[in-house]
Design a protein around this nucleic acid. Structure first.
Lengths: 277, 277
DNA sequence: GCCATTCTGAAATTCTCGTTTCAGTGTTGA
DNA sequence: TCAACACTGAAACGAGAATTTCAGAATGGC
């Protein structure tokens, strides 16, 4: 038996979205983004906030099925009342409906992957990696493969805010040799490698080990051969019962590393962040 | 040191209570009992609920220090807005809990953010975006800002596997003008923009609209001004009660888009992927 | 690129709502 | 008991709100 979903204004908006014109959609989005307050304001104000005219907002409201704007506002108030009167009820509000939506299923699976990932990464490893990253006495280098280069890039951009001496290694192998010369013993290097593992990156890792760099490897559950040359290995689940591999857990791990590192080096980070913004 | 209490309407009512006449007190009690919804209703309704006349309610409101009833309502709305959005405005504090659980907590919060994101993205919008991306008759362009460029890059790498004609716009503005010339009416453009919103990207979006491109915007919960020039807007939660914004939900959305797009264009995608691996 | 169609916002219109007034009611103190 | 005073709500008023209309702009199909 399907549990009936309460027909809130919000769900109605979602359901109606399809049938809306573009200016009306702007109104819809504004409402969802400032739910429910903007709907409690006069139409004119709602219109301005949405970058549309009052008339458009009214058309939007009527398309949602309300007979008038005051009618719509009454619905919002009633809803608000019920929500605040039974806060406990809120967690049951959106019950285990069969999520037919692709997006919901996908996100659920992803959350599961993340849970599995968190389980498998030893806290001590994570902590050691963060501390090493937060230690700005040594330079920090990042590199990834074909698909993971974007992760390296993202991490670089954020790590730069927290500490000095962050650099991403160029993807092309030709340039690698030169770049490796800059790396000193004790420097931190974060490598991203997942199936199918990158041979060039493996070679790079070997040389880094020879140069006595401190290598942190972020890899998938099958673990890249680079682990041989790494001080710290952080394995992420990338699939559970899904056809495509999902790197979201890896991305989340990157964010966690950034967050923890920033926290640990807050003294340095604070001024850098303020200067950067 | 006294903790300063924020001057909410509610506290003002309490403070004013004993200066009120008996009918006014009825109004005050009604407001406190149905806070804040009854105050968002028309005066007449408020009056009826309180068993008093509209005039009495008005006198009550003015005694609270508001210049008019709409003024009072505006205060309530602002307050309501802040109540739902403010947890993230808390200033930075180093978490007392030591590192062990950092990763777990972080991932939990992230999962929560993802849930909230999935909830807010209308299925129709997601589906429409995927379909448009799967339609390889038109070219597809991607661009991001300072931190989101990495997302564009990641999406580019994967979308390339699924379909031809994918290109990422160069980050530097100088090159933008030339690149825009290549974009034809009907082309899909995926833009990533989050706080603090990128002015150059906004300008690019404006020109894209003029060129009649089909713009898909991936943004945060406060919605980039680019939404004005976009056909589809996909808002992601980036924070719930955490100091730093987290882009994991956005990354997951990108992966979901890639997955769905690949699914929809499987005929084309299959051979491309085989050739690429 | 052109035409039919749809969409949009400014302005005119209508009506509801907030506000004010004032007569009536209740209350207090002599 | 009566007068002075404060409180209250019904009704009149005017402001500002929602709604409708319509001409011009944008869009989509050929």
């Amino acid at each position: 038996m399907a549990v009936s979903i309460p027909a809130t204004v919000e769900t109605t908006v979602h359901a109606t979205m399809d049938a809306l014109t573009s200016a009306e959609k702007r109104a819809a989005r504004t409402l969802l983004a400032n739910y429910p307050t903007i709907g409690l304001a006069p139409v004119a104000e709602f219109g301005t906030a949405a970058g549309a005219s009052a008339a458009t907002v009214l058309r939007f409201i009527s398309r949602l099925g309300f007979r008038s704007y005051p009618d719509f506002q009454r619905a919002l108030r009633t809803e608000l009342d019920e929500r605040t009167k039974s806060p406990l009820q809120r967690s049951f509000e959106v019950p285990r409906q069969e999520s037919e939506r692709f997006l919901d299923r996908f996100f659920e699976q992803t959350a599961e992957i993340m849970r599995a990932t968190a389980e498998r990464i030893p806290a001590s490893e994570f902590e050691a990696a963060s501390r090493k990253l937060a230690d700005s006495r040594h330079a920090c280098h990042l590199a990834g493969g074909r698909f993971t280069d974007a992760l390296a890039m993202y991490m670089e951009a954020h790590l730069r805010r927290a500490r000095p001496g962050v650099r991403r290694l160029d993807g092309r192998i030709a340039n690698r040799a030169d770049q490796l010369l800059d790396i000193k013993a004790g420097d931190v290097v974060v490598l991203f490698d997942m199936r199918r593992y990158d041979d060039d990156l493996l070679e790079t890792a070997r040389q880094l080990k020879a140069a006595r760099a401190f290598t942190i490897l972020v890899t998938d559950e099958w673990i890249s051969p680079i682990s041989r040359f790494s001080k710290i290995v952080l394995p992420c689940r990338v699939s559970i019962d899904r056809i495509w591999d999902a790197n979201t857990a890896m991305f989340a791990l990157v964010e966690a590393l950034i967050a923890r590192t920033t926290e640990l080096s807050w003294k340095t980070a604070e001024s850098r962040i303020r200067a950067g913004d």
